[in-house]
Amino acid sequence: MDSYADMYRMMCLIRFYENRMAEVYAEGKSPLFSIAAGPVPGEMHLAAGQEPVAVGVIRHLRRDDVVTAPHRPHHFAIAKGIDLRRMTAEIFGRTAGLSHGKGGHMHLFDPAVHFSCSGIVGAGFPPAVGAAFAFRRQHRDSVAVAFAGEGAANQGTFHESLNLAALWKAPVIFVIEDNHYAISVPKEQSTAIANNSDRAQAYGIPGVFVRGNDVLAVSEAASEAVARARAGKGPTLLEIETTRFYGHFQGDAETYLGAEEKEKWRQSDPIPQFRDYLLAHHLLTPDDDAAIQTEVAELVEDAIAYARQSPEPQPADALTDVFAPSLGGK
């Protein structure tokens, strides 16, 4: 399992990536905003501020454990160990991308680390339960984690999946990322109870709400949930309070959000807080921190440079991989 300094490094890598992606995304998109202009020709949902959710949970996972993620997937993908170069090339829509430019940033996948995501809110819950079911049937101790936002917890698939996972004692962990807003609608205006984690009771499984966007608290809750799943004791529902530093998408004017609220979020940035904690406990030195900042910047710049030089796909590439290559006359 990663050390605290490794967790900090991962959070910094995600943050640097998201901040740089915000800059790269803006290239060519001003003065007139056009979604197709610049090197990233599509939508962009950034996860800066939400690093504790990804890092706190995924540090307990192995390479063979499955993660399904939603439309805001970068932090999960990076924490799961996805190839950063190919991920970036995919976001740029280039041939070196994970799906050769067919997917874009909301549809990242990497079979090597068992990571996938979907652009449909709530769609990832049932496949995660299915993966967990397959592991049990194959007598493997792998687990599956379905990440989704608090808005997704109002989808029918969420409830159907919790019921089925509880019934089957499937090795799956449901992680709800509560960043307070489903695009513009605050949680209290969409959800009948304060904490989605309480909904676990309805399915007879543990439900834990983790406050404060605190990576160590997340890690503690996830540690228990993953151990429980791996031991064959069934699913857990975690809901993790977090904050979204950027808008729902890049270009979101965030008219629904007061400047004060946003400023409060920025003031409680989980990364400096964790750094101060590590420094105070002598788990990190200022020199370590400087080295980490240099290293993550190099990794991200390398990935961006790699993406920029990758060629664009050919039109004919749009027609490939609809079905498996014909095998034995099937």
């Binding site: 499955v66 049932p126 496949p127 339960v129 299915g130 993966a131 397959a134 592991f135 194959q138 159907e160």
Partner: peptide, 28 residues
């Protein structure tokens, strides 16, 4: 009962879990 399973009345979950199981090595 491990291979022929009575499921809840929840079609999105039936098919969604089948997808997850299929991607991970079963033939549902």
């Amino acid at each position: 009962e491990d291979r022929v399973i009575d499921s809840p009345l929840a079609e999105a979950a039936i098919i969604g879990t089948a997808i997850g199981a299929a991607v991970n090595g079963l033939r549902p």
